[in-house]
């Protein structure tokens, strides 16, 4: 669906490129989580993908169309749902949808059907004639997404679609995204909520300093290399005596209230637990098997997503 090769982009009057040699392939029908700290280049990449920024180096193909030479074709396959409420607050839900449908070059005959379709998907049927500035934040987010669905896009770019809304609306939006993806739409989803990405996406790409650090199946990435560590959350920091005692039998890294302990042939899980018990370490949680997305992200970028 998307093929990005060696994409490099710099903003005018800046020295460091915002994107540097980006390679990214997104299969048709997939749901990709695009992660990166602030300033990593996510928004720049999304802006290029939907034709808002012109690039000079590299190539981008969307639904088979070259973005430089066939921009209108590529854009016809895409819809962007920006983070901001990109609609007109003094118009009603229906007026907004009809206006953007016109901008998508839909025929008059098609418009009512599409408006009915997207309001059903986003749960806005009852709100069609309400002025948008009188809607709650959650309903505004749904309208933002509904506008993005008007052209039945092959590729939907969602930029933080659940920011600042209540849990009920968030759940509704995530369900809607799953349904849209199941219906065959390729989705690229950016969010600061790791648990959302972890629960929603099949694939992830982590981007930092204008480069794609890793891309692949979420499950594979979370499992990779993590069978040999035990993550132990502790209630109190280790005393020097406890630390010396553990170091006699274990290899571990210590962080505040957390130990990452290596498991090997000589010391299995049971041996680790026995060593912790001997030193009377106060344990609050033990984690084994896979890391979570936050840890994966930290591992690649060396900083938290919310930094």
């Amino acid at each position: 669906m998307i093929s990005v090769d060696n994409l490099t982009f710099s903003y005018p009057r800046t020295t460091a490129p915002a994107l540097s040699g980006i390679r990214l392939n997104v299969a048709r029908g997939s749901l990709l989580g695009l992660l990166g700290p602030n300033g990593a280049g996510k928004t720049t990449l999304l802006s290029i993908l939907c034709g808002l920024l012109a690039y000079r180096h590299g190539s981008v193909r969307i639904a088979g169309a070259d973005l430089t030479r066939q921009r209108a074709d590529a854009q016809a396959a895409i819809a962007l749902v920006p983070q901001d409420y990109a609609f007109y607050p003094t118009l009603s839900v229906r007026e907004n949808l009809r206006f953007f449908a016109r901008m998508q070059r839909l025929d008059a005959a098609e418009i009512d059907a599409r408006v009915a379709e997207v309001t059903a998907t986003t749960g806005l049927v009852e709100r069609l004639d309400e002025r948008v500035d009188r809607l709650s934040g959650g309903l505004k987010r749904r309208l933002n997404m509904a506008i993005g669905l008007l052209n039945r896009p092959q590729l939907l770019l969602l930029d933080e679609p659940t920011v600042g809304i209540d849990p009920h609306s968030r759940r509704f939006i995530l369900e809607a995204i799953r349904a849209i993806n199941r219906a065959g739409t390729t989705v690229i989803y950016t969010s600061h909520y790791m648990e959302e990405v972890e629960s929603l996406c099949d694939d992830i790409a982590i981007i930092d300093a204008g480069k794609v650090l890793v891309q692949g199946s979420l499950e594979t990435l979370l499992r990779a290399g993590e069978q040999s560590r035990l993550i132990v959350d502790i209630r109190a920091a280790l005393t020097q005596e406890q630390r010396d005692g553990l170091e006699r039998t274990l290899r571990f890294a210590e962080q505040p209230h957390c130990l990452s302990i290596e498991i090997n042939a000589a010391v299995g899980i049971l041996g680790v637990l026995q060593a912790l018990d001997r030193q009377r370490v106060q344990i609050s949680r033990i984690q084994y098997g896979t890391r979570n997305l936050e840890e994966l992200f930290l591992n690649f970028t060396n900083h938290s997503l919310r930094d």
Partner: peptide
Amino acid sequence: RDNGTLARLQTMSF
């Protein structure tokens, strides 16, 4: 321009 509506319209080849 600030709320992204213009960007949205640009993505619609307007």
